[in-house]
Design a protein around this nucleic acid. Structure first.
Lengths: 198, 198
DNA sequence: CTCAGTTATCAACGCTTGTTGATAATATGT
DNA sequence: ACATATTATCAACAAGCGTTGATAACTGAG
């Protein structure tokens, strides 16, 4: 099937991986890149270089930069395990997640929330992100909460996570970094929990 | 001093306003533009056209796009009157501000929070925004709260406003728009108020 | 071995970006 | 009225963008 035969011929010595594996490599590279800068600031060349391939390959695989971004985001926010836990402790769990060590959050391969906040201001990326966010996160969370105003609560919880992530990871707030982590976590947890059942 | 003498000569019939007035025109245009799209997506030509002038004028006046953005943001967040009121009703006041009619919020000349969230994901704009935000909003608010953890609380309040603005105005959340405004305002107000004195 | 069918490479396209220097137009001082 | 300083206009730069087509390299079947 894909027998990686590394033949050292006269000029082309790259590891020519077949399209299926390359697709994953490009998606991974794009996820990493878009988690660190906005849709408008990341170029196709940059993604291709990060995946160790050619810009044209990216175009062949996804058709356009916008469709690559769409494919990347399509199933992004569904599998964040912090939203799957019991509702009673969701505030605490999210607060812990948001106050994880700064360095760890910055070196992650791909962080869905950082991806979201980095491109939320882009006119091209915003509608794509909004659709995916509502379909894979807000609506399921809304059903989990169940109440009549479950959708509103789900949206407000998302807004809290989004706002805090932006302030901490995009704006690099010195106030957050200087503060007592336990104190931040406590206020944050109760503010979020209030949106779940307040 | 500036006697706007509109002379209709053979080719140049523009109203040549002196530099001081033009500076304000460009700053206003930039404020409007950056409130609707990210730093990376707005060009100097676009700002110049909105101000009814030449891109070169913008460069002469501010030196670079980055310095124009810095000058624009420098004293941005200080005069938001929603943060000046009494602490007891701050949650309610901010919730009302955030739930103002969608159309009104979108046609505003310059909205400081929209400007903030639109470019928070940009690598160039983020440090500039962060410095201005902390100096003109978070620190004064922290002093107003006064407690030992006032800075943390001020940051968390800002994060709430930022997150909700992003979800509503940048991502255009259909959930927020479909919800009962009074219900959203109520939960939002109490969640913010909890950060003030929780 | 040869032929077809994939897949990767490379150069280039047209366009936009931030920025600059030369030039034209105006206002000011004598 | 003339010289001078200040201001606006325009064309162009180099660099970067998303995107594409021609071409080379490799794989498998006959």
């Amino acid at each position: 099937m894909k027998m990686s035969t590394v033949v050292d011929n006269n000029r082309s010595r790259r590891d020519r991986t077949p399209s299926a594996e390359m697709r994953l490599r490009v998606l991974s590279a794009a996820g990493k890149a878009f988690s660190r800068a906005s849709y408008d600031a990341i170029g196709v060349r940059e993604i291709a270089a990060l995946a160790g391939t050619d810009p044209a390959i990216v175009m062949r695989l996804f058709g356009s930069k916008e469709r690559l971004f769409t494919d990347l985001v399509e199933n992004a926010f569904g599998n964040e395990e912090v939203f799957q836990g019991p509702l009673k402790t969701m505030g605490k769990q999210l607060a812990q997640y948001l106050m994880q060590p700064f360095a760890k959050a910055q070196t992650t391969e791909k962080d869905d929330f950082q991806l979201l906040l980095r491109s939320a201001g882009s006119l091209v990326a915003a509608p794509i992100l909004s659709a995916a966010l509502h379909r894979t996160l807000i609506e399921p969370l809304s059903r989990a909460i169940g109440k009549a105003d479950g959708a509103t609560r789900a949206a407000l919880i998302t807004a809290q996570v989004l706002g805090f992530s932006t302030l901490r990871f995009a704006l690099g707030s010195p106030v957050i970094e200087a503060a007592d982590p336990a104190a931040v976590e406590r206020v944050l947890a109760s503010a979020i929990q209030l949106c779940v059942d307040g």
